[in-house]
Simulated scan of single mutants.
Amino acid sequence: MKGFVGFVMIIIGSFFATSCGFTSTTENTNFATKAESAEKETATENYEVETITENVNKEESRENIIKEEIHEIKEDKAKKLEVLLYYGAGYLNVSNGAKGWAEGTFKYEDVEVKPDVSYDLIMDKGTITVKQPDKASILEDFNDFSGSQNNRWDIHLTDKIPMDLIINAGATYTELDLRGLQLNILNINSAIGELTIDLSGDWEKSFDVTLKKAMGSTKIYLPSDVGVKINSNKGFQSTNFKRLFSNTDDFYVNNTYENADVIVNINTILTTGDIEFIVK
């Protein structure tokens, strides 16, 4: 078992070493450069912590107190958003439905994994950043990650303005119900765990999806009324395409693709595990 744990940690370590710089291709996400080159307006009045509560864990074998924080980022003059999520280990749920730009409920036991939530407004672009400290130390406990309710993020995003959504996840059980959001770019780096992405429904604009994953299973739900084009590397994973057919040796498409004005372009890079594409 120790040998397996060591093997997995090597994979995860190398994964984050190569993916830590993975950001939007259309926007410069170097915040230090931005701060120096552009006039920065920090919209602190649009970010607030609504509640912080503590509940005693009922499990007798655990003595830690589960802490809960609720964060809200209100609407301002932003015309587009960049959402950056850096999550080490636990349960991550992202969906539509925020009243403002974003709302989140965060549960955690250890203060060392307390999330840092920030919002910056530069010109007409708002940047939401949520991150845990030091993924490497968190991932030492990766065996306990799956479906953990003691370390959980539930985040709702707005559907009112376009956004780039960039997610870097370590050892997580991740559910992304992104139906109805105005996505420009969806970039996901996932080290290990189960991942479900719902991209079904109607989309008004084309957008690009890039998924890079080291280990675990992935399920992606796709729309039937807009075009879908998938480039999935062969790797060491098992790939299943439901209601999709091969356009060339490298690409899979849905029945709507040839005559579609709106296209969801998906590129996946998986080291090992299995991935399933399902047209709803």
Rank of each mutant, 00 (worst) to 15 (best):
E60M: 06
E39G: 15
E69A: 10
N55P: 00
K40E: 10
E48F: 06
K40L: 12
Y47S: 08
E69V: 13
I73F: 01
S61Y: 10
K58I: 11
V49F: 04
K58S: 12
N57C: 10
E54M: 02
E45R: 09
K74T: 01
K58Y: 01
T53E: 07
E63Q: 06
T44D: 09
A35S: 12
E69C: 08
E48T: 08
K58C: 03
E72T: 15
A38I: 02
R62K: 09
H71Q: 11
E68H: 09
K74E: 05
H71S: 14
K40W: 13
E69I: 13
N55S: 11
E63R: 06
S37P: 00
E68I: 05
N57P: 00
N46V: 00
K58D: 09
E59A: 09
K67M: 09
E54F: 06
S37T: 14
V56Q: 13
R62A: 05
K40V: 14
E48R: 10
T51V: 03
E45W: 04
A35N: 10
I65K: 03
T42G: 12
V56T: 12
I70K: 15
E45C: 02
T51L: 01
V56C: 00
S61L: 11
K67Y: 08
H71W: 13
K58F: 07
E50Q: 05
E39T: 15
A43V: 06
S37D: 07
N64K: 09
E63S: 10
A43C: 03
T51R: 02
E60K: 14
E39K: 15
E69D: 11
K58M: 08
E41I: 14
E48W: 06
R62T: 00
I73Q: 05
S37R: 13
T51F: 00
E68C: 07
V49G: 01
E41T: 15
N64S: 07
T53W: 02
E48C: 02
E41W: 14
E54Y: 03
E63L: 05
I66L: 08
E36H: 13
T44N: 11
K58N: 10
E54V: 03
I52N: 01
I66T: 11
V56A: 09
A35H: 10
A43F: 01
T53F: 02
E72Y: 12
I66K: 12
T53H: 01
T42D: 13
E68M: 05
E60N: 10
E54G: 03
E72G: 07
V49E: 07
I52D: 03
S61P: 02
E63C: 03
E39W: 11
R62V: 05
I66P: 00
N55C: 01
K74N: 04
T53V: 04
N64R: 06
A38Y: 12
E36S: 13
S37A: 07
E50G: 00
A43R: 08
K67L: 02
E45G: 10
E45M: 04
E59W: 08
E45F: 06
E39N: 15
E59H: 09
E60C: 01
K74L: 02
E54L: 00
A35W: 11
